[in-house]
Amino acid sequence: MDLELTDEQHALVETTRSFVERELYPHEEEVERCDEVAPELAAEVRKKAVAAGMYAANMPEDVGGPGLDAVGMTLVERELGRASYALHSLVARPSNILLACVGEQRERYLLPTVRGERHDCLAMSEPGAGSDIRSMATTAVRDGGDYVVNGTKHFISHADMADFVILFAATGAEQTTAGPKKRITALLVDLDSPGLTVRRGSACVSHRGYHQCELSFVDCRVPVGQRLGEEGRGFDLMGEWLGASRLSVAATSVGRSRRVLDLATEWAAQRTQFGQSIGRFQGVGFALADMATEVEAADLLTLRAASRLDHGTMSDQDAAMAKLFASEALGRITDRAVQIFGGMGLMAELPIERFWRDARVERIWDGTSEIQRHIIARSLLRPLGS
């Protein structure tokens, strides 16, 4: 396995980092203070991302995207991850589930999303169904040419900025060797559809300005033509998306870890106590060494998974390992950074306390650490018949 980046990949990293430092960093304090990204700022960032050829970089060229491979996309998201999530999410990665669009769906949902004219959000989680997706209570019942949707989704990221939702709902049940399981179907639902209400969720300690919302469906009628894929096959679409999303979490965790490490190293070199820089004290120096080692290990796990994805050999275990280690490493790295900064690490004057808060959600969304461990353990035990 070649661990060295090509010249083109180095250029991609430098271009993305320059964009992040120039277009995103200057607005971080404002977003943190206001818990909002002003609409005019969001439009400006998106416009510049489109002009730079960075928008919807995960989408293939035949639908108007830049067509980056998985490794390239991982490198881009690693650099975007250095910035406030509310800002870097504006350089959109539309859900690759939209590639399942056919016919009119392409013109109405896929292509405008790739161009940055429309924005999607994805709705799986419910108050009673988080990791246990098959237990979702939201239903879509066929009635003539429509599905009638009823139920509630919550923790739906940036639904307040979206134009449509990729909804997963139960459309009946099927018998399996493990007993009856709900058949999950994906639907494309415009957010202005009658019967759909979007409400801002509770304030979150992580990622200010990037809001989670609650979606309430009451007899919301969705035309059958807005079904994404086959009825009852939404779980398969979901599985394809989760692998890519877990790589995304891993990559952004690596990027944020590197930024935190850079800040902690600079502080340790400049801050003096007892006549010398604190980095020369073993307690601080060893902490920096551990941080640096974990960043490199997380980066390699993530790039390995991305490379395997490009070659069609990535397993659920590969994505789970990358997401698990990178997100948990970020938690340890930000905690050590707070310790190195001391009291100043907890002050809003510096960004360290923000990184510390923001890191916590990475071990929860897109599959908790416990779910990732379950996936890895299952992959180890299944070949032995257990």
Rank of each mutant, 00 (worst) to 15 (best):
I166L: 06
S307Y: 05
L98W: 08
D316F: 10
I375A: 06
D163A: 14
D143M: 07
M314Y: 07
Q212L: 05
A140Q: 02
T74A: 14
S131W: 09
Y147I: 09
S206H: 15
L41T: 03
F286L: 13
V205W: 15
R271M: 13
S379H: 13
K182Y: 07
E77F: 12
T185H: 10
S277D: 13
M291D: 08
R258L: 14
H119L: 12
C121Q: 10
A322M: 06
G343A: 13
V260K: 01
S206M: 14
S193E: 12
Y147F: 15
S245Y: 11
Q270P: 02
T171P: 01
G195P: 13
Q270T: 07
P127M: 10
D219L: 05
L288K: 06
A162S: 11
V338S: 09
E231L: 07
F235S: 07
L300C: 15
N58W: 00
L303T: 07
Q282Y: 09
S157E: 07
G172T: 09
D236G: 02
T272H: 12
D358H: 03
V114P: 06
E28D: 12
L215Y: 08
G151Y: 06
Y147S: 05
S315W: 09
T293D: 09
R259D: 06
E231A: 11
L191G: 06
V102F: 02
A329R: 02
D366T: 12
G275C: 04
L99D: 05
I352D: 00
M238C: 10
V91M: 07
A337N: 04
P60M: 10
T302F: 03
E61M: 03
G144S: 08
P127R: 04
G243W: 04
L247H: 05
V165G: 02
S386Y: 13
F286P: 00
T252R: 03
C213A: 12
E23Y: 00
T113F: 15
T252M: 03
S84Y: 03
Q270S: 11
I352V: 10
A137S: 08
A137R: 04
